[in-house]
């Protein structure tokens, strides 16, 4: 086979392969959108994080503003310490409220930030004071059943 033609084919092949890799990285993966270049870390303590995972999104008003960086168990307070990396473009007031929410009924869990009214802003390394834990479906159901059972006879 002609050497030039062979080089040409191999060139096409490699270019095509790299294009496929780029497609996977940019269009399929999150390299383009959700990798915030500059971030600062905040911490939030929860009694229960449910099924929250590392790299889960952090959203405010439904817009992704960061990602969960680290999840740790604090043996002193028996709480979960969640480190979130927030895009450096966004700043939030001191009294921002962090809660663990679920997208849809069975969707993945994420951290929602509800903005407060404080003048002072959270700085890197600060701890978010006000948090709300994840809603654990099993607990909810058992609570519901208990309350039904306890006030069941009166209703009938």
């Amino acid at each position: 086979m002609n050497r030039k033609l062979l080089d040409l084919w191999v060139g096409f092949f490699v270019a095509f392969g790299i294009a496929a890799l780029l497609f996977l990285a940019l269009k399929v993966g999150n390299l383009s959108s959700a990798n915030f270049s500059e971030t600062y870390a905040l911490q939030a303590k929860f009694d229960n994080i449910g099924g929250l995972k590392v790299r889960a999104p952090v959203k405010s008003a439904g817009v992704a503003v960061g990602r969960v960086g680290e999840i740790r168990f604090d043996p002193q307070t028996y709480e979960a310490v969640v480190t979130i990396n927030v895009d450096a473009r966004y700043h939030f007031p001191k009294d921002t409220f962090a809660s663990i929410l679920t997208s849809g009924l069975l969707g993945e869990q994420y951290v929602g930030l509800d903005v407060g009214g404080d003048e002072k802003l959270l700085q890197a390394g600060d701890v978010i004071a006000k948090t709300q834990s994840a809603v654990v479906l099993e607990k909810l159901i058992s609570q519901f059943l208990f309350s039904k059972a306890s006030d069941g006879p009166d209703k009938k």
Binding site: L21, L24, A25, G29, N30, L31, S32, A34, E108
Partner: peptide, 16 residues
């Protein structure tokens, strides 16, 4: 949805 759940390092790079 695909972009928010497929992680570049975890999924793409590991696949490579």
């Amino acid at each position: 949805q695909m972009q928010s759940s497929v992680d570049f390092r975890q999924d793409i790079i590991n696949g490579v």
